[in-house]
C-alpha cells in the first residue's frame, strides 16, 4: 500500500497542479476527471480550466490525453469519474437533446479538417447554417463567402475535399467551425502535417480571427470567445498562446498565463517549453 502510494507520488512529483490566476472566467472546467480505455488510464484526476476570451493551449507529450480532453468537452466521451462543465453546465449529465444544443456553442477543427467527403467546400461550410438556422440561402452564401475569404479559400468553393491539400482542408474546417459564431473554438493539433511556414500562417490567422470575434462579441454582449489549441508544438505556443495548460500522464502539471509559464521554475514545464532533451521527460 505504502509502496504504491510512494510510486504514485514519485510519478506525479512534477505535477504541482498550480493554477496561476488569468483574470477571466472559465468557459470549460474539468473537475477530477478520470478516463480509461480498458486498462489504459488516460485521464487520472484532471483539474483544468479553459478561460473565456483567450487563446489557450493544452500542451503535453504525445499520448498524454489531449485529444481525449476535447472529446470530453463536446460530449463525444464521458468521464468514468469526475465532471466537465461548459459555462457552468455539467456535460455528462445532459440529455441527448440538451447535448446537441450545447454543442452548437462549439466550433471544432479536427486534425484533418473532417470535411464531409460527399460535399464540396462551399456546402461543407454551409452545412451548420443550413442545419441550425432559418437563414435564407442568400444570407448563408454571404456568411460562408466571408468566412472562406478570411481563410483564403475564396476560389475553392467547388472543390471536393479529396482535391484539397492538407493545409486547405484544415482552413476549410476552420471556416466551417466558425460559421455559427461559436463561443468556444477547439483546434485539435492544427499544426500536424503542415510545414513551419504554413503553421505560422495558420497561427496568425487564428489570432486575427480571435481578435475579430472578440470585437464582435463585445458589440453583441455575448461571452468572449475561448479558443483552445491542442498541440505539442512549442513554436506555435510561443507565437499564439495567451494561456497554457501543461498536461502529462493525465493530469495538469501547471497552468496559467503563457508569459508566466515560460518563466516557470518547474523542471518539467521548463524542459517541455524549451524542447530540451535533458530533464524529467524521457522516452518512456
Amino acid at each position: 500500500m505504502s509502496t504504491t502510494a510512494t510510486s504514485q507520488e514519485d510519478e506525479y512529483r512534477w505535477h504541482t497542479g498550480l493554477k496561476r490566476a488569468h483574470g477571466s472566467k472559465d468557459a470549460v472546467e474539468f473537475f477530477d476527471v478520470h478516463k480509461a480505455f480498458g486498462r489504459n488510464k488516460i485521464l487520472r484526476g484532471l483539474n483544468m480550466g479553459i478561460p473565456e476570451g483567450k487563446i489557450s493551449m493544452i500542451l503535453g507529450p504525445s499520448g498524454t490525453g489531449k485529444s481525449v480532453c476535447i472529446k470530453h468537452m463536446v460530449g463525444l466521451l464521458y468521464p468514468d469519474q469526475g465532471d466537465v462543465l461548459v459555462h457552468g453546465e455539467s456535460v455528462p449529465n445532459m440529455e441527448d437533446d440538451q447535448l446537441f444544443k450545447m454543442r452548437q456553442k462549439f466550433g471544432v477543427l479536427f486534425q484533418d479538417g473532417a470535411l464531409f467527403g460527399s460535399m464540396n467546400v462551399f456546402d461543407n461550410v454551409c452545412f451548420p447554417l443550413r442545419q441550425h438556422t432559418e437563414k435564407s440561402e442568400e444570407e448563408i452564401g454571404e456568411i460562408v463567402n466571408r468566412r472562406l475569404a478570411e481563410v483564403g479559400l475564396q476560389n475553392a468553393h467547388d472543390k471536393m475535399p479529396n482535391e484539397l491539400s492538407g493545409g486547405m482542408r484544415k482552413r476549410a474546417g476552420f471556416a466551417r467551425a466558425l460559421v455559427l459564431d461559436p463561443d468556444i473554438v477547439l483546434f485539435d493539433e492544427p499544426d500536424s502535417g503542415l510545414d513551419p511556414v504554413r503553421t505560422a500562417l495558420l497561427g496568425e490567422l487564428i489570432q486575427e480571427i480571435h481578435e475579430d470575434m472578440m470585437n464582435e462579441a463585445q458589440k453583441r454582449g455575448t461571452p468572449a470567445p475561448a479558443f483552445t489549441l491542442i498541440t505539442h508544438d512549442i513554436m506555435t505556443a510561443r507565437r499564439v498562446a495567451e494561456h497554457i495548460s501543461v498536461l502529462w500522464k493525465g493530469r495538469i502539471v501547471e497552468s496559467g498565463p503563457a508569459a508566466e509559464l515560460f518563466q516557470s521554475d518547474n523542471q518539467f514545464v521548463r524542459q517541455f517549453l524549451a524542447g530540451e532533451s535533458q530533464g524529467p521527460l524521457g522516452m518512456e
Partner: peptide
C-alpha cells in the same frame, strides 16, 4: 476521417 465526430459536434 472524424466525419462522424464532426457531425455530432455540429449537432
Amino acid at each position: 476521417r472524424e466525419e462522424l465526430d464532426a457531425l455530432q459536434v455540429l449537432g
